[in-house]
Amino acid sequence: MSPLKAITSWLETLDLDMQLEVAGFAAFLMFERDDVLTLGGSEQLEALHQWLNEPGLPSYVAADRALSFRICFGCFVDDRMTDAGCKRTEELVCKILKEAKRGGKFAASRKAQRMLALLPARKESWERVVRSWNELTATCLTNEAVRSWSAASKRIGLKVIPSSGVPIVPLRSPHRGTG
């Protein structure tokens, strides 16, 4: 399985809220196009899926993307799971709640109150996400695993078909069967 397919498969195991949060972070850090940053959550998720599943990528580009995602998302996870990161999130939600109450924005106030009440459960969800992410990075996304996949793909001139993650052999390859 290609590293990008491994990331896509992992992402799809997450509930939709987590997928949207991961996509929002990825859009913020990884995409250079300004228009991606103005998209809503579902559009950011679609942009991330397109980036991970772009057809016909050379193996070195797929490997670079997998490693870029691993590094960027790893930084996000490291910050998210620290006590300071959790505290910042709580402080931000409290600030939003205070401003919403002060401004008479009842819908925003209710949403912030709900977010505040759900923070402990959200932290537990993130702990599960981090465990599954760490399992993925320790197996499919190590430097060695990505390098080996890329080298094997280059040796036989393969390109990734994102829907299956299976490489295909070009028509003029000496590795095609003779029937």
Rank of each mutant, 00 (worst) to 15 (best):
G103H: 00
M81K: 12
G104P: 10
E99P: 02
K105A: 14
E99C: 00
M81R: 15
G104C: 12
G85I: 05
F106M: 15
R88K: 09
G104M: 10
G103P: 00
G74D: 09
R88E: 03
G74P: 07
C94L: 15
E90C: 07
L97R: 07
C72L: 11
L92R: 15
K105L: 13
V77G: 07
L92P: 01
K95W: 01
F73D: 04
E90T: 08
F73C: 01
C94G: 01
M81T: 15
K98Q: 12
G103I: 00
C72V: 10
G104Q: 11
M81Y: 09
V77R: 05
T89H: 09
K101M: 01
A107M: 13
G74V: 08
L97C: 02
E99W: 00
D79R: 14
F73Y: 07
A100Q: 04
E91V: 06
F106P: 09
R88W: 06
E99S: 00
E90N: 07
I96Q: 11
K101V: 06
K98Y: 08
L92I: 08
G104N: 13
I71W: 11
G103C: 02
V93R: 03
K87M: 06
K87P: 06
D79K: 13
A107C: 09
G85C: 02
E90F: 04
K87Y: 06
I71N: 12
K101Q: 08
G74R: 06
G74Q: 03
I71V: 14
D79I: 08
G85F: 02
C72P: 00
K105M: 13
A107I: 13
E99F: 00
R102P: 01
G74W: 03
D83E: 15
L92W: 11
L97G: 00
E99Y: 00
L92H: 14
K87H: 05
T89D: 03
M81D: 12
I71G: 07
E91A: 08
G74K: 07
C75P: 03
I96P: 05
G104Y: 08
G74S: 12
I71R: 14
T82S: 15
R88V: 02
G85K: 03
K95A: 06
R80Q: 13
R88F: 04
C72R: 07
T82V: 13
F73M: 00
F106Y: 15
E90K: 09
C86S: 10
V77F: 03
L97K: 04
T82Y: 10
L92A: 14
T89L: 12
F73A: 07
I71K: 14
G85D: 01
K87A: 08
I71M: 12
C86F: 10
A107W: 11
M81G: 11
V77C: 00
A100K: 04
K95R: 13
A84K: 09
F76I: 03
L92G: 13
T89P: 03
L97N: 03
K87V: 03
L92M: 14
E91R: 05
E99R: 01
D83K: 14
A84H: 03
R102L: 10
F76Q: 08
R88I: 07
R102G: 05
E91M: 04
A84T: 08
K105D: 15
V77W: 03
G74A: 10
D79T: 13
V77L: 11
K101I: 01
F106A: 15
T89I: 05
L97F: 01
L97Q: 05
T89K: 10
C94D: 10
